[in-house]
């Protein structure tokens, strides 16, 4: 038996909006420890992982682990019927073929869950989520890829298009900066990675969920773009860097 109740449907809507460009169908794996989702995009170069903590819900009951395969576009369509401050309830019985209230058909999705190590990144940048979104959007009008370089002074975004180049440098702020403006850098050594802008732009759909975004980078590893939600834990996006050959 699974019962989830959230008094702010808007939060679930924002979560869905932030992932449905990247992934069409996904398994919500619900357990006593929370609801998690891990899914790859169709080209398998990007991935997302999501955790919704039980204490983020007004009511959370999950008697045994249950995996709900859902079409995210259908789920978003149904949630559009709820306004942001409406209460949404998701029930799934042990028959596991629908969630009631919405009576949405569940799917069987074969997915491979991957073990993702969290630590050991060479450079970690925290910056305002809205600033990161604006930079990705602006550079996306110029080039297809962006080179993100982190040094102890700041984070640099460079792109090259058919007709011009663009370079944006964001300097690390002082410790007294306001949270919504702060840019902080933890770095073992400078890192520079080239990434497809269309994926980064898709990740920034999660901007309404958090004030700050955390970007973790290491050579030879996928970049991690993380949004920490105030009451629901996190959503993380992973993208394989492009390698010049």
């Amino acid at each position: 038996m699974l019962e989830l109740r959230l008094t702010r449907a808007g939060l679930l809507k924002k979560v869905l909006e932030s992932i449905r460009d990247l992934v069409t169908d996904a398994n919500f794996d619900c357990a006593a420890t929370g609801c998690s989702l891990q899914a790859m995009d169709s080209s398998r170069v990007a991935m997302l992982s999501l955790l919704l903590r039980p204490d983020g819900f007004e009511h959370y009951r999950c008697d045994r682990n249950i995996s709900m395969g859902m079409n995210l576009a259908n789920m978003a369509r149904m949630l559009r019927c709820a306004s942001d401050d409406d209460t949404v309830t998701i029930n799934a019985d042990d028959a596991q073929d629908k969630i009631s209230d919405y009576e949405m058909k569940l799917m069987h999705i074969t997915s491979e869950n991957l073990e993702i190590p969290e630590a050991g990144y060479e450079a970690i940048v925290k910056m305002p989520a809205s600033l990161f979104a604006r930079i990705c959007k602006d550079l996306g009008t110029i080039g297809d890829t962006v080179m993100i370089s982190v040094t102890k002074e700041g984070i640099q975004f460079f792109t090259r298009g058919d007709i011009r180049t663009a370079n944006i440098f964001c300097r690390k702020t002082t410790p007294v900066a306001k949270e919504k403006e702060a840019i902080s850098i933890e770095m073992e050594k400078p890192v520079s990675l080239t990434l497809a802008l269309r994926y980064l732009i898709s990740f920034t759909k999660a901007t309404p969920l958090a004030k700050q975004v955390t970007i973790s980078m290491s050579y030879g590893r996928p970049i991690v773009v993380e949004y920490k939600m105030e009451i629901m834990d996190h959503i993380r996006f992973y993208l394989v860097p492009k390698v010049e050959e």
Binding site: M40, V45, L114, E115, I116, V240, K242, E244, E245
Partner: peptide, 14 residues
């Protein structure tokens, strides 16, 4: 040429 591997090659299966 820009080469891009799949994300599955970076992580092990659970």
């Amino acid at each position: 040429v820009n080469q891009q591997s799949q994300i599955t090659s970076f992580f092990s299966k659970k």
